[in-house]
Write a protein that binds this DNA or RNA. Structure first.
Lengths: 233, 233
DNA sequence: TTGTATCTTTGATCTAAATCAAATTAGTTC
DNA sequence: GAACTAATTTGATTTAGATCAAAGATACAA
């Protein structure tokens, strides 16, 4: 129950699933997959694929940190953050769709394996356990996005930022002390508010002794208090 | 491209997919499914299943109109509206999950087929085309929810309501003239704003000649103008 | 009918957070 | 190093939309 709530309320939208789907492939299928897959390295800030372009592959994040986001006229809406090892692009695989509905960008230097879309769909249609695993993955992603949806629409600024910090700590870096790879602009985009609001709230959190920031490192000092702030909106 | 944008910007989050997945089952599988499926009728307003309870089935909406929503402390967040024929509950099928992460409720009298969860998972793991179809369905649902996410977080009230009206018209009732099954409260919940704001904006739309309301029927008079309002926020 | 309760509309006020503006700080380039 | 640009912080102002409050509608039971 506690778990339900924390997941539901979480803003961070990170797939936690460790990808073990390749074990579900036969030797032949695995060889086939290998022949249809290439590894590519992207630099911090690089756009990996662009909303509106044709779908050419499904991706596996091997190293790094990336986001998927919808590009609006003004602001972008971050859908999900991905940490290794996760599959990116499953949500484009609906029938009749040929174009990407969101962009993908690297927060930090990242390595991805690109799987040719036809090959991926072929495996999906021929290997039921593999396909079932993809259903499970997609379901998990849905849950995390729904949690983020809830957070951004129902909580106010302090709660959203508290939530984001906790999420980065627990789900991305798995440590109360972690490097701040994200700029204020990126944090603002993630938390769905203005850069100025981020600066203000961070200042408040610092002066209240909830967090500490020094040389691009952030330290969560009082997770319980932050958790409370996140819960109460 | 136009399609991309309209989908991306749409608030309504309705799966448009006509369910033809049963054709993907063998005769044996179909018989098996039948033995594990029951039909149940729900009345307007009835809660079909409740967030936090154990997952016991996947559902197929046969007739009616239902919503899935996350229950918060105060407000609810509507995730999706479903029209017949669509599968409901796929997003709970991730590994290790045993409880529902959202509730389901009937907007109007509705009929659903409940498929025992174990049976559904069994089919998923044994029939690859069927599982691939479920991946496609989940992907489509993701897309619609992302569109709604975008709409509720990036547009302001006039745009959100314009969007919702267009969506009800084009995707639910498939007519510019349709019955208003939803109360102001339900519209407010869907559009993510207060009941008073809904009343005010509806009045404005009426006086501007964009819509007409009489005896629980609503008529879209100027879809182009509404479309413009939806686009511009 | 009348009374009661619920839903909807309209107006007045309030507030969270955006925007605007200016000052500081950090990072780069020459 | 200085000079310049970009990022961040802090304060002042504005605003979209919520909340509060009250008046009409609508529905329904006795």
């Amino acid at each position: 129950m506690t778990d339900t709530n924390s997941v539901v309320r979480n803003s961070c939208s990170i797939g936690t699933n460790q990808l073990d789907c390749l074990e579900l492939l036969t030797a032949d299928e695995y060889a086939y997959l290998q022949s249809k897959m290439v590894d590519v390295a992207y630099q911090k800030g690089e756009v990996i694929c662009k909303q509106g372009s044709f779908i050419s592959h499904v991706m596996v994040l091997r190293e790094g940190l990336v986001k998927t986001y919808i590009e609006g006229m003004g602001d972008n809406l971050v859908l999900q953050i991905f940490t290794p090892v996760n599959v990116i692009g499953l949500s484009n695989l609906y029938e009749g769709n040929t174009v990407l509905h969101h962009s993908t960008q690297a927060y930090i230097d990242s390595k991805l394996s690109l799987i040719e879309i036809g090959a991926f769909k072929h495996l999906l249609r021929s290997n039921a356990p593999f396909a079932a695993k993809m259903v499970a993955l997609l379901a998990e992603y849905s849950l995390t996005i729904n949690g983020r949806f809830f957070c951004l629409t129902q909580k106010q600024t302090y709660g959203r930022l508290a939530d984001l910090l906790l999420c980065l700590s627990s789900r991305v870096y798995k440590n109360y002390h972690f490097p701040l790879h994200l700029s204020r602009k990126e944090i603002a985009e993630l938390a769905g508010m203005s850069i100025e609001s981020i600066a203000r709230i961070i200042s408040k959190f610092k002066s209240d002794g909830l967090i500490e920031i020094s040389c691009d490192q952030i330290k969560i000092l009082d997770p319980e208090k932050l958790e409370m702030i996140s819960r109460n909106g």
